[in-house]
Simulated scan of single mutants.
Amino acid sequence: MLYHFRLKNSALVEFNSEHCKIIITDTQGSPEEITLARADSRALELLLMDPGAICSREDILAYAWEGRVVSAGSLNQSIFMLRNLLGDSKDHEILITVPRRGYRFNSDYLLSAPEVAQTPQEQAPASVQPPVVQAASKQGIGTLVRLGYLLAVVCSLLSLWRLYSWYAPTNDLHIATIRQGELSISAVGKSEHDVKTLKSDLLTLGLSEQNLNGQVFISRTGTRINLSCIRQTGGAYNVEFQFDDERIIGMLKKCMGGE
Rank of each mutant, 00 (worst) to 15 (best):
D59C: 05
L61D: 02
L61S: 10
L61Q: 11
A62P: 02
A62R: 14
A62F: 03
Y63R: 12
Y63G: 07
Y63F: 15
A64N: 12
A64G: 12
A64H: 14
W65F: 15
W65C: 04
W65R: 11
E66R: 15
E66Y: 14
E66G: 09
E66T: 12
G67F: 09
G67C: 14
R68S: 14
V70M: 10
V70A: 11
G73I: 05
S74H: 07
S74P: 01
L75H: 04
L75N: 05
N76W: 13
Q77D: 08
S78F: 07
S78T: 12
S78M: 06
S78R: 01
I79T: 06
I79Q: 02
I79C: 08
F80P: 03
M81C: 06
M81H: 09
L82N: 01
L82D: 00
R83N: 09
R83G: 03
N84L: 07
N84H: 10
L85F: 00
L85W: 00
L85D: 02
G87N: 10
D88M: 03
D88A: 04
S89R: 10
S89L: 11
S89K: 09
D91A: 15
D91T: 11
E93C: 13
E93H: 15
E93F: 12
I94E: 00
I94P: 06
I94T: 04
I94D: 01
L95T: 02
L95C: 04
I96S: 06
I96K: 13
I96Q: 13
V98Y: 00
V98M: 04
V98F: 00
V98H: 00
P99R: 05
P99L: 06
P99G: 06
G102P: 01
G102E: 00
Y103R: 06
R104F: 05
R104E: 08
R104C: 09
N106Q: 06
N106C: 10
S107T: 10
D108W: 01
Y109D: 06
Y109C: 08
Y109R: 09
L110N: 04
L111I: 03
L111T: 01
A113W: 09
P114V: 02
P114R: 01
E115R: 04
V116F: 13
A117C: 08
Q118M: 12
T119L: 12
P120N: 01
Q121Y: 04
E122R: 15
E122K: 15
E122I: 10
E122W: 08
Q123V: 10
A124Q: 11
A126Y: 15
A126L: 15
S127H: 13
S127C: 08
S127F: 11
V128E: 07
V128P: 02
P130C: 09
P130Y: 06
P131M: 02
